[in-house]
Nucleic acid binder design. Structure first.
Length: 201
DNA sequence: GAATAGATTGTCT
DNA sequence: GACAATCTATTCT
């Protein structure tokens, strides 16, 4: 299993949000390997997208990695209690990123269940941005990590399993984004039992 | 299954 | 000092 190449992340952000559905997200740590198929993701296209943290070209220590080259991890703390994993795309100085909202557990399921403190069969294992980060042990330490290096611990990879029909909808919990609220930039595998909140069709 | 409220902290105004 | 790309427990039905 090897990381997808940098060129994968050089696609337009909305195209990429759809293309990553069905790919494997993998994290290797000292405890072992953990990962699963991405079944839900959203595109954030700063600086014009008011829902993006990089809106209006906002450039701070937190958003800095989005202005760098594609294929790196953007990890941030949400509501003081949860981490969320995104991957950066687009050329340097274009702050675009894709938020991974849910995965279907495939690798290291027992390890993920242990980290989450629940049964390995529980669908709450990875059905939300903060939950999947907890299951994969992704936190601030992964900020800025290169997803395309030969020895990358955190990366996306191709998956043999076929991908089901893909649906799309408006993004979740961005009511503050004005005209951008209704953009259908959330993509998901229809009726997958590991989807987070929001439309499932 | 759906709706509600409380938790908790880094970041920006 | 307010808020946030959320999660969990609890209380309904």
């Amino acid at each position: 299993m090897k990381p997808l190449p940098r060129s994968f992340y050089e696609q337009p952000v909305v195209t990429l949000a759809r293309a990553c559905i069905g790919k494997l997200l993998v994290h290797r740590t000292a405890e072992g390997i953990a990962g699963g198929r991405i079944v839900e993701a959203e595109a954030y296209r700063g600086p014009e997208d008011l829902a993006a943290h990089s809106r209006r070209g906002l450039r701070t220590a937190r958003t800095e990695v989005m202005y760098g080259p594609p294929g790196h991890a953007y990890v941030y703390l949400l509501y003081g209690t949860s981490w969320a994993f995104n991957f950066v795309c687009g050329p340097v100085d274009e702050p675009h990123a894709v938020l991974v909202r849910a995965i279907e557990p495939l690798l290291g399921i027992e390890l993920m269940a242990q980290r989450r403190g629940m049964e390995a069969t529980d669908r709450a294992l990875t059905n939300g941005p903060g939950k999947l980060c907890a299951a994969l042990a992704v936190d601030k330490g992964a900020y800025g990590a290169d997803l395309c290096g030969r020895g990358s611990a955190l990366f996306l990879a191709a998956c043999d399993a076929p991908t089901g029909p893909i649906g799309r909808s408006a993004r979740i919990h961005i009511d503050y984004a004005g005209d951008w609220v209704d953009k259908p930039w959330r993509f998901f595998e229809k009726r997958n039992r590991f989807l987070s909140t929001g439309p499932r069709e």
